[in-house]
Design a protein around this nucleic acid. Structure first.
Length: 260
DNA sequence: ATGGTTGATCCTCAA
């Protein structure tokens, strides 16, 4: 089973690039973030024509997450528990029935949090505390599950080209990295850093300032695996090539192969 | 050099 995560930065602007990539990689499950689309504006048809079931948690203009699957899906839910007043579309989960094992997949778009400090950074840290609560609850099932998406977290200095540039940024501040580490330390395996421990496996390059050309990137898209899912992990890959295509997202897809 | 890029949108904001 191939499970991919991809911050697409606008599903309508990205549709041709998405269809090309889906046709090339043929993931069994794809978790999309930053749809920037309401549910009824999502270009469902061309994706369904490729054989995918599409589950959307959209929001007009901003945010938005989706699960695409060529395998059966059950128990689809949307919205991160813990704050009934939170209207931002950043969380979707479902159980995928693989040929060998069922795997719960959670797609997430963690708040950016800039500028920090400030109310947006407070919202980010509050959201991460709720994520920790949800992660702990799901780990208690002791079953294969994963949480993947744009975490907007640079876990370690070697996960960006120049930590000095990011020192005061919400993606790299100590509070952010500490909150991320607390979640990982519940028992998760970071698939990309585990399979490829060498530095420089970036997943995001800002559009500005020639950062792709200079490889001034950051690793902020992560797949965290429960112990039972980590036991099924075969490998993890970054599809950097899509950044060279026409009208690319500022993120590239990251995907794992699971024996499930 | 207080710079520059992209997407969605109410003409600025979020990233």
């Amino acid at each position: 089973m191939i499970v991919a995560t991809f911050n697409i930065n606008g599903v309508r602007a990205r549709l041709p690039a998405l269809l090309d990539w889906l046709g090339d990689r043929k993931p069994d499950v794809a978790l999309f973030q930053e749809l920037k689309s309401a549910d009824d504006s999502f270009p469902r048809g061309p994706i369904e024509d490729l054989g995918y079931r599409v589950e959307i948690h959209g929001q007009k203009g901003f945010n938005g997450v989706a699960i695409l699957s060529r395998l059966p899906l059950e128990d689809v839910t949307t919205g991160l528990p813990g704050d009934p007043d939170d209207v931002q579309a950043r969380w979707i989960e479902a159980v995928v029935s693989g040929p060998k094992r069922a795997v719960r997949v959670c797609g997430l778009y963690l708040p950016n949090g800039n500028p920090a400090p400030g109310p947006k950074f407070d919202y980010k840290l509050d959201w991460m505390a709720r994520l920790e609560d949800r992660a702990r609850a799901l780990l208690a099932f002791e079953e294969p599950f994963l949480m993947a998406g744009d975490y907007n977290v640079i876990p370690q200095p070697e996960d960006c080209w120049d930590p000095a540039v990011w020192a005061d940024d919400a993606l790299f501040r100590l509070e952010t990295r500490t909150a991320f580490r607390r979640i990982v330390n519940l028992g998760f395996t970071d698939a990309l850093s585990t399979c490829h421990s060498e530095p420089g496996n970036y997943t995001f390059w800002d559009y500005q300032g020639g950062r792709w050309r200079r490889n001034h990137g950051a690793r902020i898209d992560h797949l965290l695996l429960s112990p039972q899912a980590a036991d099924l992990l075969i490998d993890c890959h970054v599809d950097k090539y899509v950044r060279n295509g026409p009208k690319p997202s500022d993120h590239v897809p990251v995907w794992i192969e699971l024996n499930a």
